[in-house]
């Protein structure tokens, strides 16, 4: 049985794929995007203990050099993740695939399946393969929400049990991607083509940023020229909520102008995209 660090599980989610789904967020991500809305999912906790005294409900304690989180005492005030200087969270549960399936069973009559997100869930591909096999046995579907860092073609057995991938393409310009996410995008672009070729590309997600009109347009152009009308394109409007200071300094504390955002949508459509949704 395999295990993975779970940041949280949302029993009902209407934004992570078709229909109502259970959304599972796994911890850790190789990217560090300017606009990350949940930076506490980026790193694994290093058990430095800095967050422990800041917990108002005594839900955190250090035992044998490790932070221990008592879920029953936690008020979900999120003080700990605001305090943590390491882009981590002490509220991580290490769960087995069976434990995740148990959670799914509680809501199985209300959902069509699961969507696994992060962090970057593809940091745990073997776990996903095991989990998705069990989900399939329940006659439900499994989707992946990924930043495309890990190459999907290296995991053919996972692809067999995965019903689709929602892929973030943060930027198609390699240099800009490097600045924005602190990593290049070679594997992201390969994944885009690969997933399309094996018919597992459910959706491509592009975040439209203020102050980077040219990059926004370039990413939309390049993605549409590859994907054409073969997958839904979801344009996401930059919003400053949860973004840390580094990102706010570069992107500002206002959401992307609504008119401009709608213009991007029309632009994508004019280039021959199929379904374009904007959120």
């Amino acid at each position: 049985m395999l295990f993975a660090p779970v940041n949280r599980i949302i029993p009902f989610s209407n934004v992570d794929g078709p229909g109502n789904r259970m959304a599972i967020f796994l911890q850790s991500c190789p990217f560090q995007c300017w606009y990350c809305h949940n930076p506490e999912t980026i790193n694994m906790c290093i058990h430095c203990g800095i967050c422990v005294p800041g917990c108002p409900s005594k839900a955190l304690a250090m035992t044998h050099g490790k932070v221990h989180w008592d879920e029953s005492l936690c008020e979900q005030c999120d003080s700990c993740i605001k305090i943590c200087p390491h882009l981590a969270s002490p509220k991580i549960l290490t769960m087995s695939s069976d434990e995740v399936i148990d959670k799914l069973s509680e809501v199985s009559s209300f959902v069509r399946g699961i969507t696994v997100s992060g962090g970057e869930c593809m940091m745990h591909p073997e776990f996903l393969e095991e989990l998705f096999g069990k989900v399939k046995a329940l006659n439900m579907t499994s989707l992946i929400d990924s930043n495309g860092f890990v190459r999907f073609e290296d995991y053919p057995r996972l692809m067999d049990v995965c019903d689709g991938v929602m892929l973030d393409v943060k930027a198609t310009d390699p240099k800009f991607h490097q600045q924005l996410a602190k990593h290049d995008n070679a594997s992201v672009m390969d994944n885009l083509r690969y997933l399309l070729s094996v018919n597992k590309l459910t959706e491509v997600r592009i975040v439209c940023l203020p102050r980077f009109d040219e990059q926004n347009r370039k990413t939309i152009e390049d993605v549409v020229s590859i994907v054409k009308d073969q997958a839904r394109i979801k344009l996401i409007r930059y919003r400053p909520y949860g973004v840390r200071k580094e990102g706010l300094d570069i992107l500002g504390s206002a959401s992307l102008d609504e008119e401009l955002f709608l213009e991007y949508r029309r632009y994508a459509q004019s280039l021959g995209a199929g379904e374009v949704v904007s959120v």
């Binding site: 009902f12 209407n14 934004v15 078709p18 229909g19 109502n20 789904r21 809501v107 009559s109 209300f110 959902v111 069509r112 959120v279």
Partner: peptide, 20 residues
């Protein structure tokens, strides 16, 4: 508010509720 965009997701919940 976001549920207004996904009524089919709400219908999934309602189906489950009736079965329950």
């Amino acid at each position: 508010e976001t549920w207004k965009n996904t009524p089919e997701s709400l219908l999934d919940i309602i189906k489950g509720a009736m079965n329950a």
